[in-house]
Design a protein around this nucleic acid. Sequence first.
RNA 1: GGAUGGGUGGCCGAGUGGUUUAAGGCGCACGCCUGGAAAGCGUGUGGGGUGUAACAGCCCUCGCGGGUUCGAAUCCCGCCCCAUCCGCCA
Length: 423
Amino acid sequence: MHDLKLLRDNVAALREGMRRRQILDVAGPLIDRAEGLDRERRSLLARIEERKAARNAASQEVARRKKAKEDAEALIAETRALGDEIAALEREYDHAMSELERLQYELPNIPLPDVPDGGEEANTVVRTWGEPRPSDGVRPHWEVGAKLGILDLERGAKISGSGFVVLRGLGARLTRALMSFMLDLHTREHGYEEVWVPFLVNRRSMTGTGQLPKFEEDAYAATDDLFLIPTAEVPVTNLYRDEVLDASALPKAMTAYSPCFRREAGAHGKDTRGLIRVHEFDKVELVRYSVPEESPAQLELLTGHAEAVLQRLGLPYRVVLLAAGDTGFSSAKTYDLEVWAPGVGKWLEVSSCSTFTDFQARRANIRYRPGPGEKPRFVHTLNGSGLAFPRTIIAVLEHYQRPDGTVTVPEALRPYLGVDVLA
RNA sequence: GGAUGGGUGGCCGAGUGGUUUAAGGCGCACGCCUGGAAAGCGUGUGGGGUGUAACAGCCCUCGCGGGUUCGAAUCCCGCCCCAUCCGCCA
């Protein structure tokens, strides 16, 4: 969500941001409409407030006259008329404001200057780590997983449907190991506070981080107006919603495990095999709050924390800076971490590290006070996976695969898993 | 799920229709005083919007949303949250 003042002070920047996202054809008319509505709204507001001031003065005069036992009937009638006028104007105002708010929630964040122009094809690999293993002779994870008896896709589909998986034996234990390993790394070495949050959240939270209102069809809705979280970003970022933090609390760093539920509406037929794209998966998430001045550096830091997980696991990956047209709705800049999966022969996104500048903070009303006596400002929010489990498991099963179909357990996971080999 | 009691400014707390369109206190900031400090005294001290070159001014804000009224923290309706008790339950 953008500050309405942007419409008055720098609408060109907003327009340019939408052009860079390649949606100016759709967003341009929305911006024009919003500009008009904002003007209309402010002019109505001026008239309303003028009349309210008059009514307040008149009411006081009524009080004075009553106290003095003077006649106030004529004045009361006048004030009543003023009240009717105010009510009529307020109806107009509410009408304009609600449409303006709807438009506000429709417009995505403005990409940072160092985000490349263009669509997906303009995404830029900024660095690569490790040696991608050649695909020759490497079986895809679903074959290895089935053979090892740790992955049961058929029964996942039976009990829940396509896109739901059952892990068993060492596969189930691998999930538990990944959770502990990642949380330990981030809390002990990267300074994050571990939090455990609800996996059902209300509408306000989903709106705060930007999933709603625009992407409601992507979420699983429960009864009582609750939603299954698509990522721990939602509950964790919303932790300090409607609060003002002390400057000394920043930067704030929190990490949480959670399952993630995604309908993947519109993604059917893409990457349907195995663990690549599923409706429910597990993940450890990293969330940071920062002062605006430091958020670019904080994004680099957070991305490094996510990368550290892959490095500890010895999994080759690359860091991709997303182009403006491929950057998510709420994000101003995103690095995708893509792990190499030789079995399926693809780079798979295991983490998406983003800075949202004040876009989410404004929606969720998360502020901080720069100093004593100073006005609160919006924080900048950032987050990234650290990491998503299924694709990490894919990479482990494929990268560490042996000719006989067994899998070497990465050094870092052995203390958590208790075995050296998946066999 | 049922019952009862609550939700007021950073905190405590007064306030059942109009000099309370938020008293008083604490805390905090600044000033006076002091060799320095404490105490004391004085002044100031929420958030949002609109507006301005910047001030000022004005509007909104007493959990949230409606309603009654010339006027609502105060009256009415609905909802949310908290506490306690009962029931149920992992």
